[in-house]
Amino acid sequence: MHYFRENKKTIFLLVAPGFAFFLMAVLFPIGLSVYYALTDWSGIGGFNYIGFRNFQRVLQDRIFWHSLKNAATLALMTITIQHPIAFLFAVLIDRLGGKLEKVFKTIFFIPCVIPVMVTSKMWVNIYNSQYGLLNKVLELIGLGFLKQQWLGDPKIVLYSLVLIMMWQGFGWAVLIYYAGVKSLPEEVFEAAKIDGANRCQTLFRITIPLMQPVIAVNVIWAVISSLKQMETIYLTTNGGPGNASQFLANYLYIKAFDAYEFAYGNAISVFFVVVCLLTTVVLNRLLTRKEYY
């Protein structure tokens, strides 16, 4: 082992394949995006160098900032609504034990294994204002006055989409929290039980503090996933009506491939990468502590 650490040639040979893959799969595409963002290329034919005009345009683009705001709304609602519920279910599933534990793990993870296209189309039908299940149920239970055009009203379309995406990702959140709960040392809980701690005290004074590293990972994952959301938006509203439900990834796709503004789409993607990196760094600083390692 000491030989491998001292031999620089061996270290280089071991690291080179991974670094080459990282260079070609990550750094090179980012560099190419920066290059194209400095041009006026439409995606077809020739192009001219225009400097930083596309980047200036992004900074003045209301839809870009609205898309970023929508992603922040999704992240906030995921962390404050989905995660507490997922955490609670993870604890309850752990306490069930036996066959019921396996059954509920499977049930909660089902939305994660169904293709996004299938679940998105299913929710489009549920939300349909004429024959959708949601409006039919509301009418059936005497709440017909609450019927809405769930994906057609700019005021509520974002929240309708947030519900879909939280439902789709609920199983992942439960699974991560469940794995964290399962890894907690049993002797700590046994000691708390001997000391007379009830379930509520055990949850808030032992389980949650010990789960802080897992919670941090799940929060970071939720925020980054919110920034990268595209498939569900594309398959349900495509950012509409207007751009009320627009998200960054979907917006840059529209600009690059639908509007034939390939260079501008690349400028958005560069900002997109920067936002994701900054968000990850900031959240890592805020949510991780040295004593957890």
Rank of each mutant, 00 (worst) to 15 (best):
Y3R: 15
V15E: 09
F22H: 09
L27E: 03
L32N: 07
S33Q: 08
Y35D: 03
Y36C: 02
A37D: 00
T39H: 05
W41D: 02
G43K: 05
F55E: 06
R57Y: 06
R57S: 08
Q60I: 09
R62E: 06
I63V: 15
F64H: 02
S67N: 03
K69Q: 07
K69W: 08
N70R: 04
I79E: 05
A86D: 08
L92M: 13
L96F: 14
G97K: 01
G98S: 04
L100S: 11
F104Y: 11
K105D: 10
K105N: 08
K105S: 11
K105W: 00
T106E: 07
I107W: 07
V113I: 15
P115R: 08
M117W: 01
K121T: 09
W123H: 01
W123E: 05
N125V: 09
S129W: 03
N135C: 12
K136T: 02
E139N: 00
W150M: 14
W150C: 13
P154F: 13
S160Q: 06
V162W: 04
M166E: 07
W167C: 12
G171A: 14
I176N: 07
G180L: 09
G180R: 07
K182F: 12
K182S: 11
P185E: 03
E187D: 15
E187T: 13
V188L: 14
D195H: 12
G196R: 11
C200L: 15
C200R: 02
L203A: 06
R205P: 04
T207E: 01
P213T: 01
I215W: 07
V217N: 10
W221A: 14
W221G: 11
L227G: 12
I233A: 00
I233P: 03
I233T: 00
G239Q: 05
G239I: 12
N250S: 13
Y253Q: 01
A256F: 02
A263S: 08
A263T: 04
A263E: 00
I268Q: 03
I268N: 06
S269T: 02
S269E: 01
V270W: 05
F271P: 00
F272C: 01
V273Q: 05
C276P: 11
L277I: 15
L283T: 04
R285I: 14
L286V: 06
